[in-house]
Simulated assay, not measured.
Amino acid sequence: MTYQLFADVTSLVLILIGSFLVFSAAVGVVRFKDTMSRIHAITKPQTTGLILTILGALLKVTGSPEFGVAERGDLGVLILLVVFAAMTSPVTAQRLGRVSRREGLYGAAEDMSRNDAPTERSLRRR
């Protein structure tokens, strides 16, 4: 078994799993009713799916028989995509959750527990 065949098979598996996770994130955003569930659906599986898809592309590029200088530049761009996605997604989710809690955008009050309920008063001083 050559490295090219190994890279092709492994990249296919990673890309399929990653695309399934991204698809499940999109379905979760459409199906979930409250803000926190939607935030969870868009950040966790979407970021993991993106990382798996990019890792599959990395393996595909390195397994290519024409692997040269131009392909090494592509590897750098793919690695930067992974780094920036891993850095920005948790921060975005935290900020969205905080704003939705402060603004009362969670959902119906009767569906929430005491810990899920938005604050009764604003934390800002007026």
Rank of each mutant, 00 (worst) to 15 (best):
K44R: 11
K44A: 13
K44V: 15
K44S: 14
P45H: 04
P45W: 01
P45Q: 07
Q46H: 09
T47G: 10
G49E: 10
G49R: 12
L50E: 04
L50H: 12
L52T: 11
T53G: 15
G56Q: 07
L59W: 07
L59N: 04
T62I: 15
F67A: 07
G68Y: 02
G68H: 04
G73T: 07
D74T: 14
L75T: 03
V77G: 01
V77D: 01
V77M: 09
L78W: 08
L78G: 02
I79K: 00
V83H: 05
F84K: 07
A86L: 15
M87W: 13
T88A: 09
S89V: 15
P90R: 09
P90W: 03
G97K: 11
G97E: 02
R98S: 06
V99H: 09
V99T: 12
V99C: 06
S100Y: 00
R101M: 12
E103I: 10
L105T: 03
L105C: 05
Y106V: 08
E110A: 09
D111K: 11
D111R: 08
M112L: 15
S113L: 08
S113W: 00
N115P: 00
N115Q: 13
N115R: 13
D116A: 02
P118A: 02
T119P: 05
E120Q: 12
E120N: 10
S122T: 15
R125V: 11
